[in-house]
């Protein structure tokens, strides 16, 4: 477990990337999303890519409100559909650095089909997936990452479906870059996002994040959740991804984080350049 780090980007600089006129933001006290937004903003500033070439896209949910607070080109679209919007934009404007910031419900549950196929195609986009284990905005229903046994407003007797192991899923599908961090790992998260910007192809980081709504129903208020993360997080870049599913109930099970996958495989958009050349007779 890493301790708190001092980052090189000052808060004042990050503030310039925020739409401060929209504050206060909608997120609950203790929510992890704000920290992720700050890390993303820091990464944008450090990226060396002009700010106006960064585009941030989201669907619906708490995390999906992130683009609304960032002074970048931003599209806040339908529930579950930020990935295809990002793919459409990136395909016609390859000079843009297109990042999706959204939640587990948006990207993995309703948007699961787009998630798997964008990874299969290896679309050149970045996905920052904030996993808070629940539908916070709609009041606490279960989703595709809700842990077994969890109490939600639609699983009042405990959740029985089973949940996605996000890095394992993304790696199995062939994602070029796969990472998992928590809001406690701000430096590592900034570094992971910077790596994602460099990847030609699908890059994803899952952020295991505290949620007031989830915490209220499962005796795990945000502060307790952060303590739990602090106690149980293990950094292991070489982890066996099949074994890093998250079980919040089992105090002996570590929450494994790290930059798990970083491979080179040309993206759809890069491969399509070859198609264009071929179609134009090698011109």
């Amino acid at each position: 477990m890493s301790s708190l780090r001092v980052t090189t980007i000052r808060s004042e600089e990050v503030k310039k990337l925020l739409r401060l006129e929209r504050f206060p933001h909608i997120w609950c006290p203790g929510c992890g999303i704000g920290t992720v937004v700050k890390c993303y903003a820091e990464a944008v500033l450090k990226s060396g890519i002009p700010e106006e070439k960064h585009v941030v896209i989201s669907g619906i949910g708490c995390a999906a409100r992130a683009p609304g607070y960032l002074k970048l080109d931003g599209l806040h679209v339908l529930h579950g559909r930020p990935i295809p919007v990002a793919v459409g934009l990136k395909s016609v404007k390859p000079d843009l650095e297109v990042t999706v910031i959204s939640g587990d419900g948006d990207i993995l549950t309703i948007g699961g089909n787009h998630f798997i196929h964008a990874i299969r195609r290896n679309d050149d986009i970045n996905v920052i997936l904030i996993n808070n284990f629940i539908y916070g905005m709609t009041g606490g229903q279960y989703g595709a990452t809700t842990p077994l046994g969890a109490i939600t407003t639609t699983s009042p007797y405990g959740f029985i479906e089973g949940s996605f192991n996000v890095p394992y899923l993304a790696a199995a599908l062939g994602a070029n870059f796969v990472a998992r961090w928590t809001p406690l790992h701000t430096k590592e998260l900034v570094d992971a996002i910077l790596k994602m910007f460099k990847v030609d192809g699908f890059a994803i980081v899952e952020i295991v994040s505290p949620c007031l709504i989830y915490g209220e129903m499962n005796n795990l208020p945000p502060l307790e959740m952060l303590k739990l993360l602090k106690e149980r997080v293990v950094i292991d870049h070489e982890a066996d991804l099949s074994k890093i599913d998250i079980d919040l109930r089992d105090p002996k099970k570590p929450i494994v984080v790290g930059n798990f996958v970083n491979r080179v495989k040309p993206s759809y958009q890069t491969r399509y350049m070859e198609i264009i050349k071929k179609a134009r007779g090698g011109k």
Binding site: L78, G88, A279
Partner: peptide, 26 residues
């Protein structure tokens, strides 16, 4: 591709229509 454009066959019609919106905003 002959005119320098891009074709993508998506996983469904939902992704297709949303991708058009992304391209339009490009």
């Amino acid at each position: 591709p002959q005119v320098g454009g891009v074709f993508i066959q998506f996983e469904d019609e939902i992704a297709s229509i949303m991708a058009l919106i992304g391209a339009a905003y490009g």
